[in-house]
Amino acid sequence: MNIKKIFIILLLFNFNFTCVSSIEPDIFIQSTVNRASQILSKNISKDQKISELRSIAKDTVDILGVGYYSLGTIRKNLNEEQKLKYSNLFESYFLKSFSSRLSEYTNPKIEVEGKEVLNKNYTIVNSILVATSERPEVKIDWRVYTKDPDNPLIRDLIIEGLSLARTQKEEFASILNSNDNDIKALFRALEEFSK
């Protein structure tokens, strides 16, 4: 076997490996919701469910990115210490809020319907929460950040056209506006929620 052949084999191997390791956003979402669904249908306590859902959120959501987005333009005025404090508080707040919202559902069935590639950084994955006798069908769109195709991350959930990231951002802005843009007021609110 000459050098040329070895080089071609290595090149093909590398190409194949790249294709396999890149994760399609719709497959990523379907696998994420399947993981969550499995946990929610398990016969375990609500606290255990919340704990397992938190670990999924840590793996699949760009918590830091969503946190900075939610903070709005005030993030530019924070010093490093405040940024660090905010990141920690936001993560605790987000994980509690996210897992608490989801844990209300028992065995939810989410079906991915399609995707729309917006640009190289973003893909919207369309899905539906299948209707049951107690609630109608709910449209859920996932905004997936795909800058690193090997490690896609969720940046927003758009439920029936309503963005959770935007709601959170406007909620934080309201707290800041009511307190003369004092970041400590937001810290207090986040701490209070995460208790």
């Binding site: 056209g161 406007e170 909620e171 802005a173």
Partner: peptide
């Protein structure tokens, strides 16, 4: 799950 329920309702109403 809101830290400011009033602001959440305001945002959701506006988006809707």
């Amino acid at each position: 799950n809101s830290i400011d329920f009033y602001a959440s309702v305001k945002s959701l109403y506006t988006q809707d």
